[in-house]
Each structure stands twice: as C-alpha cells, then as structure tokens.
Design a protein around this nucleic acid. Structure first.
Lengths: 110, 110
DNA sequence: CGTACATATGTGGCATCGCCACATATGGAG
DNA sequence: CTCCATATGTGGCGATGCCACATATGTACG
C-alpha cells in the first residue's frame, strides 16, 4: 500500500487543524489523528516531534512547557496568527488538490 | 506551498487512471494530467519516466515501443490485469484517505 | 516490590519520490 | 538554419515519514 506516500505532507494540515481551537501536546496529536480518522491515519510519534519543531521554527505554532504534579512535563503548542493564515491557505489548496485528483481518477467523495 | 508533498504518491493513481481505457505514452500522460487538473497538477516529465519504469517492473503496466513515420519512437503503456486490481484498490484507499483528512481538518468537498 | 505498560519527548539513519539540470533525438514552423 | 514542441532518459538533491533506539514517570497487576 503506497498510501504511505499520501500521508507525506498531510501531517502539517492535520496538526494545524487540531490546534485550531485549543493548545495540544505532541503525543495527544498522534492519538487524536488516529482516533478521528478511525484508524485510517496513524503517525509514529517520532515523526510528529521533528515536525512540531519545524513548524515552531517557521513561526506557525508556538510551544510552551507545562508541568503538573503527577504528570510528565508536556509541551503544548498553539497556533500563531501566521499559523491561522497558513491553515486557511492549506485548506483551500487541499480542496483544490482533491478535486483535481477526482477529475482525473474519477473518485467520488460522497 | 507544501502542496508539493501532497503530490507524492498521487502520480501512481493518476497514471493508472489515465491508462484505464487506453494505452498512452509518458509525455502524453504529463500533458493530460496538467490539462485535466486545469493546471493544478503538473509533473515534470523527468519524474514520470522513472515511475513508469517502476510500475512496469512491478507488473502493473506493460509497455511497448511504437514507431511511426514522421514521429519519434514512443513507448505506449497499458494496464495489466494486476494493474486494474491495483487501480481499484487505490481508488478505495484514496477515498478513505480523503474522508479521513476531511473529518480531522474539516474540509468540504462539494 | 518489581515489572510491564501507557504516557511523553527526543535522536539518527534510511527509503521513497518528485524536482531540476542536463542530455539526446526528431519533426515542423518561421 | 534556428528555435520550439515532442519524446525519452540519467543523476544528484531535498523533504518527510518510518523505524530502532533512548530516556523518564505514573499506574496497574501479580
């Protein structure tokens, strides 16, 4: 299943989307993606952390350490204003992309 | 625009789809993808040839040289029976993938 | 008590695949 | 005769997810 390749680049859109309404940490993102996609999408957490790093360095997300008693330290990320712009742009691009593939491959998206 | 990454892996589905009803050669595939996607999707032909090679070695497409007077030699590819199975499977996977992304990212595909 | 597992973050090497520069060759238009 | 579209091909590069491995803590089970 070369579905693996489809995932490349999709992680960014997924992460930005999941951070749209609230701050989350890396491990949580991994579980959310798997759960909300009903198992279709699964990212190794080890792939997520470097990506969060890159997104932070690009200024689209901002992270801060949170330590609570009875919990391991976590790094929560939230969207920056630029992140919101990027998310909107990526949603438009993704939609155009899917429609383009659909026209050529004849896939229906009910 | 990281749309570039989305394209990874999509080429295979596109090629198989375009070969579904008739044999075509590499250069033609490149132009068809650009035209039918209305410019959204564009692959450098140099990317297409190695991919056609790989697909042929995997036994999902079969190519043959065609030489006509007043034309450069062309290599026409057609789907093998296995290629048709793969195409059907990929269409299902692609649809599931797009729906999964949609659930998480909240993208509408009208 | 100890040991296994879920949680939580991180590093480094690897594979895949499209990009891009470049190469080669032919037919047609100006 | 020069340029462009057609047509196929090679090789190095970059981006990104995979996977093995490392580290550390809280919880459940025997």
């Amino acid at each position: 299943m070369p579905d693996r390749e489809w995932k490349k680049g999709s992680a960014e859109l997924l992460i930005l989307s999941l951070l749209e309404h609230e701050a989350r940490h890396g491990y949580e993102l991994g579980r959310l993606i798997e759960a909300r996609s009903r198992g279709v999408l699964r990212f190794h957490v080890a792939s997520l952390y470097p990506m969060l790093y890159r997104l932070e360095q690009r200024g689209v997300i901002a992270g801060r350490w949170v330590e609570k008693a009875g919990q391991r330290r976590r790094r929560y990320y939230r969207l920056t204003p630029e992140g919101r712009k990027l998310l909107a742009a990526q949603r438009r691009s993704w939609s155009a992309f899917v429609q383009a593939i659909g026209r050529i491959a004849g896939v229906q998206h009910a």
